[in-house]
Computed example of a mutant assay.
Amino acid sequence: MRLTNYTDYALRSLIYLAVKPAPQALANISDIADSYNISKSHLTKIIHQLGQLGYIDSVRGKNGGIRLARAPKDINLGVLIKQIEPDFALVECFATTLPNDNSSQNNEATQKGLPITLIEESKNAASVGCVISPACQLKAVFFEALNAFINVLERYTLADIINNKDELNTLLSL
């Protein structure tokens, strides 16, 4: 499993905002982009989504900027990643979880909040793209691995990954 740069930059942005010496002071996107040497325009889209999801407060105007909207201990990494990562389909026999799907694995995925499920075994293999899909045991292994991946992420919060604030401040030139 590989997370997208989008998710990576979202996490980096939250880290930046959480380790600032004055956490409630406003920061700006340019400072974050410069600290990590990443595109300001790309980061603007990410910050916008983080704001829509309630992770970041933004203040408009001449003295505006952004700051965390929640305490770092209240930002669960697994929940955040499930909200912003666009694709958890590790293989082509995974699909977006459907709200009315009642299969046991799909209920397990929904209960865990996973945005994926396994495509029904009874479907035509040609529609999935893999001829062994109806008999394949590998997809269940991948599904279990993805669940484990998400479960580990859900054990951590932003606070857990910023307990070395002084070192991070130095590296980010804060």
Rank of each mutant, 00 (worst) to 15 (best):
Q52F: 15
A33Y: 14
S35P: 06
S173L: 03
P115Y: 11
Y9I: 08
K62L: 12
A33W: 14
E92A: 03
A18L: 03
G54N: 02
T170G: 01
R155T: 10
N100G: 01
T96S: 07
N37L: 11
P134S: 05
A159I: 03
A145I: 05
E85D: 05
Y6M: 04
S173D: 08
D74T: 02
P134I: 02
A126R: 10
N76T: 04
K165D: 06
A33F: 13
P21E: 11
K73Q: 14
S41D: 12
L11V: 08
V128Y: 12
Y55V: 01
E167M: 14
D160K: 07
A71I: 01
S13L: 07
I46L: 11
K112A: 15
L77I: 14
L68V: 02
V19E: 05
N107K: 15
M1R: 10
S122Y: 13
V91C: 06
L171Y: 03
A95T: 11
S35N: 04
L98M: 05
Q105C: 00
C130R: 13
K20N: 06
T157M: 07
Q83L: 08
N102A: 05
I84S: 13
I66K: 06
I150P: 00
A33V: 04
N147P: 00
I38N: 10
I161F: 12
Y9V: 03
E154F: 08
G61V: 01
G78D: 09
S127L: 08
R60N: 02
A27C: 08
V152E: 14
K112Y: 04
C130T: 09
N164L: 13
I81M: 09
G51K: 13
R60L: 02
A18I: 01
P72Q: 03
Y9T: 07
I150N: 12
N102E: 09
A148H: 14
D8H: 06
A89N: 15
V131Q: 13
E144I: 04
A95L: 01
I161H: 11
R60K: 09
F143T: 02
V131P: 02
E120T: 02
R2V: 03
L98T: 04
D34N: 15
A89I: 01
Y16S: 00
K139W: 06
N107I: 13
V131F: 09
M1C: 08
S173N: 11
N124G: 00
T96H: 12
H48P: 00
Y9K: 15
V59D: 02
N169K: 12
P99R: 07
D166H: 13
N102Q: 10
Q105I: 08
I81V: 14
N164M: 11
H42P: 00
R70Q: 15
H42T: 12
E85H: 14
E92V: 00
T157Q: 09
N100A: 12
L11G: 00
Q24G: 05
I75C: 06
I47C: 02
N106C: 12
L171G: 10
L146Q: 08
K123P: 01
T170A: 14
N169G: 03
I84G: 13
F149P: 01
N107A: 14
R2G: 08
L146E: 10
